[in-house]
Amino acid sequence: MTGEQIMFYLLGGGAVLASAAMLLPPMGRSPIHSAISLIVSFFFLAGLYALLSAHMLSVLQIIVYAGAVMVLFTFVIMLLNLNADELQESRITPGRIAAGILALFVFGKLATAIQLTTAGAQSVDLSDPGFANFGSVPEVGRMMYTTFLVPFELVSVLLLVAAVGAVVLAKRSMKYVDRPLPPPAGYEHPAPSDDEGGHDAHAHGGGH
């Protein structure tokens, strides 16, 4: 076993253990403990990325996921402040069993597929000078501003939409100025005497 393989099994095993701890009791019972297990799992994954020579991805994993996203998670959990009654004991239901079987099936398929794909594959020597820049920050940046320029710019639009949307939905207390539209010039009221809504609006409209 090479050093790389030992590192892989250590990191991979750690990631699996941390993920298991996230879901299963005793850690899985408290949302905060689950979130912390998730952070640990993210760190192990970052290590795996580093092993794959994806330095940039590895650092981003820690900054973005273990940093920003998890801070958000823990904030939300603390804001909700669920107590023991609201956190129901997880029970085994037919739906969950079916979901578990489906997940196992997909896992089996994926494992077979990986086995088949990698059977005759040759490993790439990343110490080769041709791969000197592989996964580095300049290389990723170059890709982002050349080949993937359009998706990169589009993602900024997506983030803008998300930000605008969040403000629109969250500003519930914003005062709404209720001023009905005035009727257009030359508009003839169909039946002013018994049309309550229309009459109301008409009166308001006349005020401007």
């Binding site: 939409v161 605008v164 939905l169």
Partner: peptide, 20 residues
């Protein structure tokens, strides 16, 4: 990649518009 991001821009806007 572009297809997915376009889909997300559309969906994200529609989610908000539905709850407008």
């Amino acid at each position: 990649l572009t297809l997915f991001i376009g889909l997300e821009i559309m969906s994200m806007s529609i989610y908000v518009l539905v709850a407008f």
